[in-house]
Amino acid sequence: MDEGLKSELGRQGIFVLRLEDLYNWGRKNSLWPLNFGLACCAIEMIAASMARYDIARFGAEVFRPSPRQADLMIVAGTVTKKMAPQVVRLYNQMPSPKYVIAMGACAISGGPFKNGYNVLKGIDRYLPVDVHIPGCPPRPEALLHALITLQEKIAGERLLGDSAARREGPSGGQYPVPSYGAHDLVPPCNRELWNPPAIQRDE
């Protein structure tokens, strides 16, 4: 649409925009996070929702305790193998379209506790992650930056086409829940989601 025509119409009080943009604008400016804090990063998440670093400015004020009412899951803190089935179950219970932010080094790759028998080395072994925030713990401003990045990502989504398929996913947004094995989780990771690149080293 011609920009001149758009601004002319705008001056007359008629706003023209695509349905896609309107839909995405509504969704991105009112993301409802799931009240899901695991460890130390949860305290920085709470601090981000408090008076100084107000997350309510960006629309994510209403932290819902129930996954059925939330559309953003901020995995804040270390995911242990004992907790991992519960995290995946909660993700499955969220309605589409849903997003995951992995906050902190522990949620990205296990963090400082990587050499652990109970630590899951990154939540992206079982869930698709949209934004990763490095830090231990990341400052509240970093969480706000991640939220803005996610909002930009949502703004670029299309109603039809590839992006629509991403929202539902081939599995309809449901991912298999791991179970407790004798020594480790069964399966140790979700092969469809997590494929680290191979680096061939000449030794």
Binding site: S109, K114, N115, G116, K121, D184, P188, P196
Partner: peptide, 8 residues
């Protein structure tokens, strides 16, 4: 001995 959890 920890389970072999291939860490990238």
């Amino acid at each position: 001995v920890e389970p072999d959890d291939y860490e990238y």
